[in-house]
Design a protein around this nucleic acid. Structure first.
Length: 671
DNA sequence: AGCACGCCGACT
DNA sequence: GTCGGCGTGCTC
């Protein structure tokens, strides 16, 4: 071995040392290091040795440095598999985070926790058996599987979009694919949105894969999490199931990555690095030569476009594998007509009639309203001023206990007696929230037992579990809530779902608002009617003609996707063009303005040097300009080629950092 | 991130 | 004269 030197990345979160350093490899470590090995190195004048990771081995040393020696291999650290390291570098470049932040993401647990006696799983064997396998596959499932198997023998890898209606048996297809990989001696990763990682799911998977499945979820302790990753690294586990972070399971011979409910927003990490698990999964699959399967009944438009353009192979499951469940019957109510006819209540006549029917039959109702609190804002009837948060550029939400709260920063104050700007005592609440909806529902249906589930109800005690259980047990007739209630939970006795104001989502100032609206409505529709009871679904709206509402009512995904893609094309939004958003934030507004202008200049210069010029918008103030006393400005860059955006961003950032001292935070996100 | 180096104010 | 403030700059 003539590789006498190693490039090491240090485990220090600071941009000034966020680059590799070259060290000599001492005699006794020769041949023992591979990319990803955790090592102890001397650094600067630091008294203690620093932890670092070998990034690459090299034969020649760079000149101009007095090289120092690696002290030794850091024990009790899981070495990073080489490809995972490559993945970290890729994430560093694509999401604008520091290398060591990317590393921390890729190796979620670095430190071994003292080995504790293993908890014997509370998993009772046998009970979940009936819920799974041994069922005959449908013809469609067979076809999908043989398609996947054929591709596997032709050449490893490939990406697939499994577009399957609810109840078409996607999960069974996943299970068979995972078993196939096991037979081939390869490992598989199954990603699920956190909300789907329920006790039942976990038990089902353990039934199916026994000791070979490693499951991670948010309630796991750090030590247990570490153990699961360690089992994957040592080959004790061959299947990793979990949320986004399960993507980084250190499997040596990964053969398959499945992302279930791929449209789910939970696949975007909201902390640094702001990665999209679907993109990272595609990259990891590419590096490992593994197959990638994205599954959904309502795919994201990005994935749909890729599938229709042949980048992903489209696999369809159009028929329900389970007989009985019928899609809910939808009614769209135009709220403008209600007002015209003199109905000033929040319940349209159609909705209140349908609620009455359910109540008389002893069936349950869910009402969805995407705004918590009592009233959206409090404003003065004399001068028109609304009460605003002193730290953010938003109005304060009125809560039923008389408090005024900021939903951005958590600021709280009591409702004043008089208007702070003119002294008038006439303050009135506008815009209804869930708390007021509970009140109004109680007035409208005095006999009904009502429960509320939103972020406020969830806070504290058991995270809303008792509310859900109470409702499931039939101890209430109507459940009122925010989007929390439409995700995941199934209540067999719910036969009516009402969306109080479908438009709130549409008016959100984002290019994805129609897609979000469609997804929420589709999920809400899915809550109505199970098995033998036909469900009904009522959408109240001021824009009944909108394609998101029309296609959600018709439960026609493809119609929605076509309309949405046409809109994205016309407006030049993703996935037609890639869009990089750059957010600059600072407490000092003047410094921010200066920094934003400087960044824009750096972008201009970087653009001039690049082969192709992206479209740049901004700097403009963020939709909510100030949050928690930080001012925020945005710059948007759009271009058909992803790499051009990365290249220009990287060059601009370098020039920018050379000129700006600090106090300005910079955030990148591909949207 | 750490730690040293360096160049100006009040102390035994 | 020197002890110590933290601005600036470097670490393979």
């Amino acid at each position: 071995m003539s590789e006498r030197y190693a490039d090491v990345i240090l485990n220090i979160s600071h941009e000034s040392v966020d680059r590799p350093f070259t060290y000599m490899i001492p005699e006794d470590l020769c041949g023992k290091l591979t990319p990803g090995t955790a090592v102890q190195v001397p650094f600067g004048n630091a008294k203690e040795a620093k932890l670092g990771y070998v990034l690459a081995l090299r034969k020649e040393a760079p000149t101009g440095f007095q090289l120092r020696e690696i002290l030794g291999i850091a024990e009790k650290k899981v070495g990073v598999e080489e490809r995972l390291l490559t993945l970290a570098v890729w994430m560093h470049e694509h999401y604008g985070c520091m290398l060591n932040q990317a590393l921390k993401t890729v190796l979620p647990v670095k430190e071994a926790v003292k080995a504790r006696p293993r908890k014997t799983g509370a998993t009772g064997r046998g009970e979940a058996k009936d819920a799974l396998l041994s069922r005959e596959l449908t013809a469609e499932q067979q076809a999908v599987l043989s398609e996947l198997r054929r591709a596997e023998t032709e050449k490893a890898g490939g990406s697939y979009l499994l577009f399957g209606v609810t109840g078409s048996g996607k999960t069974e297809v996943y299970m068979r694919c995972i078993e196939e990989q096991r037979r081939l001696g390869k490992q598989a990763i199954l990603l699920l949105p956190e909300i789907n990682l329920t006790f039942q799911t976990v038990r089902y998977l353990e039934e199916r894969f026994g000791e070979e499945v490693a499951i991670i979820h948010s309630k796991l302790s750090k030590g247990e999490r570490y153990r699961q990753f360690h089992r994957a690294a040592r080959g004790e586990a061959t299947v990793m199931v979990g949320p986004r972070s399960a993507l980084f399971a250190p499997f040596p011979n990964l053969g398959l990555i499945i992302i279930d409910e791929e449209h789910d927003g939970a696949y975007r990490n909201d902390a640094v690095p702001r990665y999209d698990a679907r993109e990272v999964a595609a990259k990891r699959a590419e590096l490992a030569g593994a197959q990638l399967i994205l599954g959904s009944a309502t795919p994201s438009v990005e994935s749909w476009q890729r599938a229709t353009q042949g980048e992903y192979r489209l696999l369809r499951l159009t028929k329900r594998a389970v007989s009985g469940a019928v899609p809910a019957e939808a009614t769209v109510v135009d709220l403008r007509d209600e007002l015209r006819e003199g109905n000033r209540s929040v319940f349209s006549r159609a909705l209140s009639e349908k609620i009455m029917v359910r109540l008389s039959r002893g069936e349950q109702v869910m009402l969805f309203m995407n705004r918590r609190g009592y009233a959206r804002f409090l404003s003065c009837r004399s001068c028109g001023e609304a009460l605003r948060c002193p730290h953010c550029d938003v109005t304060l939400t009125l809560h039923e206990d008389g408090s005024l709260r900021c939903h951005y920063c958590g600021y709280r104050t009591v409702k004043p007696e008089r208007c702070p700007s003119c002294g008038s005592p006439y303050l009135a609440g506008f815009g209804m929230g869930t708390q007021q909806l509970v009140e109004q529902t109680g007035r409208m249906f005095p006999a009904a037992r009502i429960l509320r589930l939103d972020a406020d109800a969830v806070r504290g005690k058991d995270g809303g579990q008792s509310i859900l259980e109470k409702f499931r047990a039939g101890k209430a007739d109507i459940l009122i809530g925010t989007q929390m209630i439409v995700k995941g939970h199934d209540f067999p006795n719910v036969t009516l779902v009402g969306v109080m104001a479908a438009d709130t989502e549409l008016y959100a100032n984002r290019y994805t608002s129609a897609e979000r609206c469609f997804q929420l409505l589709t999920q809400a529709a899915g809550r109505a009617g199970r098995a033998n009871k036909r469900g009904e679904f009522v959408i109240q709206t001021y824009r009944p003609e909108h394609y998101a509402i029309q296609s959600a009512a018709a439960q026609d995904y493809e119609r929605f996707a076509a309309a949405e893609l046409a809109y994205r094309r016309a407006a030049g939004y993703p996935p037609v063009l890639h869009m990089l958003t750059i957010q600059l934030a600072a407490k000092d507004e003047t410094a921010l303005t200066r920094a934003a202008a400087l960044f824009a200049d750096c972008l201009k210069i970087a653009t001039a040097l690049a082969a192709e010029a992206p479209q740049c918008i901004g700097p403009v103030n963020a939709g909510v300009y100030r949050v928690q006393d930080y001012f925020r400005k945005m710059i948007y860059m759009k271009h058909a080629c992803y790499d051009i955006l990365i290249q220009i961003k990287t060059a601009a950032e370098e020039a920018f950092r050379a000129q700006i001292p600090g106090g300005i935070s910079l955030l990148y996100e591909f949207v």
